[in-house]
Amino acid sequence: MTRARALLRSFLPFLVGLPILVVLEAVTPPDFSLILVSVGVNVILAVSLNVVNGFTGQFSLGHAGFMAVGAYTAAKLTTALAGVELPFLPQVLSDQIFFALALSAAMAAAALAGVLVGMPSLRLRGDYLAIVTLGFGEIIRSVIENLKALGQATGLSGLPARTNLVWVGISVIATVVMAYRLATSTQGRALFAIREDEIAAEAMGVDTTGYKVRAFVISAAYAGLAGALISHAILLATPRMFTFVRSIEVVVMVVLGGLGSITGSVVAAALLTVALELLREFQAYRMVVYALLLIALMLLRPQGIFGTRELWNLALFRRLFRSPRLAAAATSGASPTEIRDDSTTGGAV
């Protein structure tokens, strides 16, 4: 019974989301649709990075590298299969099936890269990990720039247009459901334990390296998915799309929303993407604004907008929707990702 309910809770968002997305895809004008796609991709990136940086308390700066792995894998597949048609199926449908295949391959390839990067580097602590992941991101990029098959510095262009709002929406739902289910699971508890105090967690029998690597691999897989989606929306995959700056953008979103808050990441990613879209003529100031935002946030509110809380734990939200279950959760202080108040200052030596 509980198993059935858990399954339903995982699949319900997809069942509800799919018809809405199909309608949305049909009515949205193309240029607005591209903005929605980039919002969706950034949400996937931010939520998946939050699994490592927020849930586990590690600090990865290599998210763009995994995006690149996913993007190039999917791009190679879709261009190779562009003219192929499955028997007894219309061209459109077989294209979509191949795209689903390409997206899965992208996730698998990025996950594999995640294993290769994570195994050696997650044995290290905190700030070293940041530099190593950054380094791996640069290595991946420099390998792409040296491989003829991947188009070197010019990249791959003329990819088939496969990404639509349905794919992006489904992927966003999948990412958020994954993060939420992870946070409420035993796995998630182990990750929070590692974030709060790695030594204590290890003493309690948590296999810290194992859990860190798993979180890292999951996060990498979703980054690969995001890379595949964005490259099939702008029909291009170049090394310049996946630089260190891109990783920092995602970090800003996660930090702004609150390390450890799923809804925080979603809101921050959506807000930042739309805000930057509106401020297009100030493009030159974009990175400067990011930098100032990071510094100001760390000085004034280092826990981010939401802290480790979720949207439904905020006082304002609670007052608006006072359902008995939420009220009960509120009194016991039990959001899956919420932590004790004294823990944010921990870790300083």
Binding site: F59, G126, V288, A291, I295, M298, T344, G347
Partner: peptide, 21 residues
């Protein structure tokens, strides 16, 4: 006296401020 990660994020911010400024 905050967590070490906080200073690291600030350091990245300062770095980007100088580069892009």
């Amino acid at each position: 006296d905050q967590a070490r990660l906080t200073s690291l994020i600030t350091a990245i911010g300062v770095s980007f401020l100088l580069e892009y400024g």
